[in-house]
Each structure stands twice: as C-alpha cells, then as structure tokens.
Amino acid sequence: MREGFVRTLEALVATAATYMAAVTMVQTTLYNKLLGKISNSFIGPIIDPYMPYVNITVILLVLFVAFSFWRKGDEVWFGRLFSLNMLMFFPSVLDFSTFNWVGLIFNLQPTPGVTHVWVFSVGLLLQVSYLLLRYTVRFRYVREELLGRGAAEVDINNITRGQVSYLVLLVTVTAGLTAGIYWVLPYMTLVSVNLLSGLPAPHIYVGFIVVLVMAAAMVTYLRTGSKE
C-alpha cells in the first residue's frame, strides 16, 4: 500500500468532511440571519443579483481551503481543517440546543433546514474524519522512518496495510458505539426519569452517584499512573 493511496484517502476524507460541514452550515438559522443582514445593508442592492450564488460560492471557497490544508499534509494543518469544519458545524448544533445563547443575543428563532439526525451524522463524520487524518499522518511518518532505515518496500507496504486495517476497525467500532449511544440514550433518560420521579429529592441521589463515579475514576487513574 503506497503513500499515494494514503494521500488519496486523506483527500477524499478531508473533502467529504468539509463539504458536509459547509452544506450543513448554509442551512442553519444563524447563517441565514447573517446573510439576511448583509442583504438588507447598504451593499444589499449591489449583491442582491448574486445572492442565489452565495451558498455555492461559500461551499467552493471552503473546499479550496480544505484542499490547501490537505496539500500541507501534516498533523498541524489537519488539526486546523478540523477546527474549520467544527466552526462551520457549530451553528447547526445551536439550532437544536436547549440553550441557544447566540439565539438570545441575535433574537433568533431556530428554523433549521436539516434534521437532528442529519446534524448528528455530520458531527460523527467530522469526528471520524479527524481520527482518520490524524492516524494516516502517523502512518506516513512511520513509512518515511522505515524507508530511511532501509526497510524493504514490500515489508513497508505490509505494515501500512495492517495499520490501515486496524484504523478501519477502530473507526467502525467507535462510530458504531457512538451511534448506538445516540439512539439508546433517549430511552435510558426516560427510564431514569421514571425511576427517579418517585424519590423525594432526585437531584441529591443523582449528584451522589456522579460524585462516586468521579471518585472511582480518579482513584483508578491515580493507581494506574503509580504503577507506570
């Protein structure tokens, strides 16, 4: 498995993540509110004929930026790409947030153009894409190091193939668990509410359980660190 394949995989992942983040952004309440303010400003009459093309222009621009970041090809620039995608994704999260502080500032009534399932799916895609890009960069570093040590091309390709297989398995399991938690959590919340509703002070019991879990996690972490 040559480096060209890994770089092509990185390009596809980066493009898909950025495209979905941009498409989601242009369907959010905050984006359209800002677009409306620009249209109603003093430059509105000038840009009104071009307003139907604004969304596609924005998407193409961010794709060009994503391509530029991909060309850099290191972990720092992929981190910046992830930050850019999350910045575009942020308004869609606000549309479904129970406390939309941006909406309070701008007096926005959420009117998203996408569903909550869409937002979750895009968010999961962004996380998975960053995980993929982060690991593929490390795979290339390992490959270059092995080449510098004089390792055989066949052996290096086998190592890269094994790394990619492990990464695919890791991403699949992570995405599956995350999706499972997303779908099961509402039912777990409903069951928990029914169980706690009969208690005199449910918030005290919940707080006590949380404190116990945090204490147990801290003790486990400290013990693990001391053994190392």
Rank of each mutant, 00 (worst) to 15 (best):
Y221V: 12
S97Y: 04
F64M: 15
L190H: 01
A151H: 15
A151V: 14
V122P: 01
F89P: 02
V128T: 14
V168W: 06
G103M: 13
I181T: 03
A17T: 07
G180F: 13
G4I: 02
G207D: 04
A66R: 12
P202W: 11
V171N: 01
V193T: 03
M214D: 01
G180S: 06
L104K: 10
V58N: 11
V76K: 15
Y141N: 14
L60M: 13
N55E: 13
T28E: 08
S226Q: 13
R143P: 00
L170C: 00
R161Y: 03
I56C: 04
S83T: 13
P45F: 07
G36I: 06
Y141S: 12
S92H: 00
V62S: 06
G4Q: 09
L84C: 05
L124Y: 02
T24C: 11
P202S: 05
V54E: 06
E228S: 12
W77S: 15
V76T: 10
G225C: 07
H203C: 00
T172H: 00
V119Q: 09
E228I: 14
R7L: 14
V154H: 15
I47R: 12
T174E: 01
L63I: 11
F78W: 04
A16Q: 13
V13E: 11
Y19M: 08
K37P: 00
N32E: 09
F120R: 05
A17N: 04
L185R: 08
F69A: 15
I204V: 14
I181F: 15
L170I: 02
R223E: 09
G4M: 04
L195Q: 00
K33L: 13
V154A: 14
I204Y: 02
G123S: 07
G36Q: 14
V65R: 07
P49E: 12
I159C: 03
M88I: 07
T18R: 06
N40H: 12
H116P: 01
M20D: 11
N32R: 15
Y50L: 10
I46C: 04
V193F: 09
L60V: 10
P112A: 05
W77M: 13
R223L: 15
V184F: 13
M25H: 10
N194K: 13
F69V: 12
S83H: 03
V76Y: 07
L177Q: 03
I47E: 05
V206M: 05
L84N: 08
Y182Q: 03
T178G: 00
A22I: 11
F5Y: 11
A11W: 07
S192Y: 04
T98R: 10
V6T: 08
V137W: 06
V102G: 00
W101L: 12
A11F: 05
L34N: 01
T115Q: 08
L124F: 00
